[in-house]
Every structure is written in structure tokens, then in C-alpha cells.
Write a protein that binds this DNA or RNA. Structure first.
Lengths: 346, 346
DNA sequence: ATGAAAGCGCTAACAA
DNA sequence: TTGTTAGCGCTTTCAT
């Protein structure tokens, strides 16, 4: 009974006593098929357990119904959940998602070549924290949607957090708590999101009429260690502050550890706000106040955009900016009324 | 100059003045081609920027060079890094990896149908914490490798942590520190890894001649909250213990929080060891002692196994058990010499 | 060493 | 409404 290879459209046709083309019509839901013919075909299909071969279909239609998603890595929670969102949305629309990591430019280019030179995938989702010359180069006229970074240029589709607004939100939260000297641990300056969040920070100070102090701004690399070092640097330079806005949760966690080691209580003496709302953010000590981004939604919106781009190439390029949400936990508090609790030059 | 569609093998052939078959031989590295013919063809290839169409190739060869990887989700760090390991290995061997999440059985089955009914992928990597009837059903004679769970049955290829040995390792670490009453927060009982780690725990007690106490074993669901609740349950039931072995880091973190709220110092009064070595495990308070598993390696080994299975279907099924590694940080310490520091019935 | 012919499993264009 | 004929771009016989 067991057949080695799967049945083809012709075997189904033979069994149903019709031409293979009629079978094709049935499996493609064409209207131009008699009800009883259709039924005969459908019976044959179930009889043989026939399923269309996707490769042959791709071959004939010139379409692969496959999207590719490239991220610097697959493990970072933010990337992973964008990918998950994109994958679920893609699949619900009949596309599969090929995932790949490309930690650097060389890998990125190789990957693009492999994926699109061979026409394996129809569209590209680029998850990247920064847009450089490299990433904005159009490749093989591949429909592309960027997620997570804003190239600030025309003719690109993208989905990203409204980083400027979110940076503003975070900073204003601290200002509302009465903080006047807010240190800002930023991500790498070359990354767009770091720049945009910084702009939000500056705008918030501006609106509040606070005096910006360049010494309060320290660059990190998103790692907890860099947050830790940032605080020590501020301390060594005797820069006084009563609050810290870290551009991601990991740096915030590192900062809190450094403060603790310096004997500075969070949030009693210094408030700390993070960014991302990573898993277990609520389980750190103290539970982290942060800006949450809906990364699943980002991924899903990006996939939608990409599919629209593929199916309607003549359509407009679209940019979607998602809002960040302030999640207040216990790492921020009102500024200590007694001045001596503030960190300051000794 | 711009051509709308990409050049085909025939255009290259025409330009090189040979038959398309010769071009095929060149791009496939056949020996049976004259050196100068080959050169002419290669020039034509670069001239036209020709790249073979992967779909057409798949069609003709009956191979897709695509693997599929299914995990309950894509965001859990453990899963994500297995996937990343698998993806890198796959690509280095000329395969692409299709990633999909299937949170439940229904999704899992649908996905398998979509992927293999249509012959889109050639092999399957199943990342699953447990093996039930469902997962072990062979689907469409698809070459399959399981990652992360041991079905304990013949004729399956799998890669997993040696959970029993790792459970033993964790427990022995606590025993060596002098702990006699070790609570054990386990994962869901239906999951293989939970059972295996538990077995390691029991064996360690046995070896040390310690008396097992069923009341010390509490079931969680891997979440931090469940670890938190587990400790409170132990406390409410007045079960005394001086150490906790939690089967994952999240539950360990939850447990530590509960202990802190109860005014019990970690590790001074109670030691806690986790499992996984998740990101930032070293940034919790106190930095978490844990069992680290090399998930990247797991993924890469799994992909290797799968590719071998695809390319040599007649080969043996293989099981790979990877060792866990004890990472000692600051959440475990020697048992307090003064008995009154131990948690006990009031 | 090279070319011609056939076909992978399907869809698209045209006929009937 | 249905069937026939051509391909999609490549590889794989089999000749030459």
C-alpha cells in the first residue's frame, strides 16, 4: 500500500477521471468547475492524501511565499519577540518566515545574496538598531521593511518605536517626580534609537526649562556592564544627579548595581528608569520602572507592511511609529527633599 | 541596460556560445568541462550577474535545502539560542532554516502539515520541553531531531542536556556546602527535563545518605511567580530547609524574592541554586549560582544531526547528551553553623 | 567534452 | 465547463 513518493496532480486527475488542469482549478478554488466534477476531484484528493507541492507551485507561479528576516542575533529578547510577531502574522497570511542572524555587515551582505540572489525569499524584514549606508542600500530590488531603526529617509517602509516620544516620556516621568539633575546613559551614538531617545530627553529638559548638562550624558553599549561603568564614571567625575534615565533595562540594571556598591539607595537617593521592559524587569531589586515597547505588535505590523509591499508594489511606502508605554514600578521615586541625600561632589 | 528579470542559464549559455547544459555543469562544478569553455562560461556568468534560481533547482533536484524549526515560542532565551545555534550551523552547511512557533498541539500539527505536506522543508527540528504522544508521532516520514527533551525511546535522534547529571551536580553542590535539608522546586511534572532533574536530585541525596522528604519537593511552572509561591507554600507548611534547588533561574529568582520578603537572607540563611544561567543571572541580587547549559552548541549539534539524517537516511539514529556546567556565584554558601538561622517551623 | 531531449509538478494561455 | 499545450529554470539521462 505504501507509496514511496507523494501523489501528484496527475494521479489525482487520473483517479477522478479528469484532466490535471481541472484538479489544478479545484485546488486553487476556481469558480469554473462543475459541482459534481469538483466533488469527484475532492474525493480523489482525500483518497490519495494529495497535497500540492509548494516548490512546483513556486516554480510555476514565480512566487515563493517566503519572507526572510534578518536580525543581529536571535536571542536578544527584543529581536526575538519582533521575530515572533512577524512569524505569526506571516503564517496567518500564508507566508513562511526564514530567520537568520547577521551580526555584522559582511554576514549581512552574504545573507542577502544567498536569500535573494537565488530568489528564495520574496521580501526582507531587517531588524536593526541602526541604519548605516550598508543597510539602506537596496538589494536586488527586494521589498524591504525596516524594524527598529528609522533611516529618516524617503522611500522606505519601516516600523519602529517612536523613540523620541518615548525618551520624552521617560524623562518627563523623572521631572514630574521633581528631579532636576537627570543623568542619561545612552546607547551607542551611531544607533538611531539612541539618538532619538536622547532627543526626547533633551526636549523634556527644554520643556521643563531645565538646564542641559553635557556631563550628565554618558555613552554605553547596551550591556549591563556599560551601565555599571557609566555610573562609576559619573561618580568619579563628581557629577551630581538625583536620577538616571538609562536607554535600556540592562544598562539600568548595571547602573543600579553600581549605585548599590557606592552605598547609594535606589530609589531613595537616586531614581532609575530603564527602557524595554525586559522579562523579569519586575523581579530585579528594586522592580524596574521602565518604558515598555510592544515588540510583538512591531513584528506583526512589519510583516503586514512587507506583505502589502510584495503584493502591491505600486503602493506607497509607509512608516509606522508605535508609542512606548511608561511602566511605573519601584526604581523611581520623588526626589529626596533633604539635599544631602543627593549624589554630589564630595 | 536594466533587465527586469534575472538572467537564466540559457542566456548565459547564449552569451558564452555553449549549451545551457554546459553552464549547468560549470555552476555545479562538474569535472567534465574544458578549462577554456569553463572560463568563457564564467565570464558570461559574471557579465550577466547570473545566480542560479533556487526554486528551479529544488524543482529539478527534488530537494529544498530548507530545514524547519518549531519551538513553543521564539522568545524564551533557551529556545532562542538553540535556534540561533541551529541557524548558524544550517547556513554554514548550505541549508536555510524556517522558524515557527507552535504554542500548542493544534498549532504544531497544522504547522507540520503546512511545512511537510507541501514539501517545503526537508527536515524538522523540534524544540520541546516535553515529549508526549503527539510529538513522537512521525509525520510524513520527515527526518526529525528533538532538542531539549528525551522521549526515552528508540529510533529517534535527539540532543539534550544530560538533565539527570545536571540535577545531580546542582544538588551535590549544595550538599558539599553542608546542606542537609534541600528544597526542590521542580518544573511541571509532565515535562521530561523536570523528571530527569528530579531524578538527579534524588540520586544526590541517596549518594550522600540523606533522607528524602517529599514535602521538600514543590512543583512550579517555570515562572518566577511559581517560584515565589513555592517558597511561601513551604513556609506556610512549616517545612524546614536551608537550601533550595530550583529547576530554572526564573523560579529561583521568584524564590529569592519570597525569601527576602520573609526576612530570610540569601545566601546567609538559605542558599539558592538555579538552572539555565539566563542572561543577567549575574546581575540579580545576589548573583545567581546556577547550572549553565550550552544552548548554542545544542542547536548546532541538532542541526548537524538533522542534516546527517537527511543526507544519509540509512544512518543510525543518534542521541547526544550535553553536560551542564556549575556556575558558582553568590546565592549559595555554606550552611549557617548556628542552627537558629535555618528556616524552620516556628 | 559537449549537446539534445525529457521531465521535476505545477499554472497559465488558449482551444474546444 | 473542460482539456490541450506550453512553459517556469533547472538537472538528469542519453547520445554524440
Amino acid at each position: 500500500m505504501a507509496t514511496r513518493s507523494r501523489p501528484t496532480i496527475r494521479e489525482v486527475a487520473a483517479l477522478a477521471g479528469v484532466s490535471h488542469q481541472t484538479v489544478s482549478r479545484v485546488i486553487n478554488g476556481s469558480e469554473r468547475v462543475n459541482a459534481d466534477t469538483r466533488e469527484r476531484v475532492e474525493i480523489a484528493i482525500t483518497e490519495l492524501g494529495y497535497q500540492p507541492n509548494a516548490i512546483a507551485r513556486s516554480m510555476a507561479r514565480g512566487r515563493t511565499y517566503t519572507l526572510a528576516c534578518i536580525a543581529p542575533n536571535l536571542t536578544d529578547f527584543t529581536y526575538a519577540s519582533i521575530i515572533e510577531g512577524a512569524e505569526i502574522e506571516s503564517r496567518s497570511q500564508g507566508y513562511f518566515l526564514l530567520t537568520a542572524s547577521a551580526p555584522d555587515e559582511k554576514n549581512f551582505n552574504t545573507l542577502i545574496e544567498q536569500l535573494f540572489g537565488s530568489r528564495r525569499a520574496e521580501g526582507l524584514l531587517v531588524i536593526t538598531p541602526y541604519i548605516d549606508h550598508q543597510h539602506t542600500q537596496p538589494h536586488h530590488d527586494v521589498p524591504t521593511v525596516y524594524v527598529g531603526a528609522d533611516p529618516h529617509q524617503e522611500h522606505t517602509s519601516l516600523v519602529t518605536l517612536d523613540n523620541t516620544a518615548a525618551g520624552l516620556l521617560a524623562t518627563q516621568h523623572l521631572i514630574e517626580l521633581g528631579h532636576l539633575r537627570i543623568a542619561h546613559i545612552i546607547g551607542p551614538r551611531i544607533e538611531d534609537s539612541a539618538q532619538d531617545r536622547l532627543e526626547g530627553y533633551r526636549t523634556a529638559l527644554d520643556i521643563a526649562g531645565l538646564c542641559p548638562d553635557l556631563r550628565l550624558i554618558v555613552e554605553g553599549d547596551w550591556s549591563a556592564t556599560s551601565g555599571y561603568r557609566a555610573v562609576n564614571r559619573l561618580y568619579d567625575q563628581k557629577v551630581s544627579f538625583s536620577a538616571i534615565f538609562a536607554q535600556n533595562d540592562r544598562m539600568a540594571i548595571g547602573a543600579i548595581r553600581a549605585l548599590r556598591e557606592l552605598g547609594i539607595k535606589v530609589p531613595d537617593a537616586v531614581s532609575v528608569i530603564g527602557f524595554d521592559d525586559m522579562p523579569l524587569a519586575s523581579y530585579f531589586d528594586p522592580p524596574l520602572t521602565t518604558i515598555k515597547q510592544d515588540t510583538l505588535l512591531m513584528g506583526s505590523e512589519a510583516a503586514q507592511l512587507l506583505i502589502r509591499l510584495i503584493e502591491h508594489p505600486e503602493g506607497e511606502k509607509t512608516s509606522i511609529y508605535l508609542p512606548g508605554e511608561l511602566v511605573i514600578r519601584h526604581s523611581t521615586a520623588t526626589i529626596p527633599s533633604i539635599g544631602d541625600k543627593e549624589v554630589s561632589a564630595k
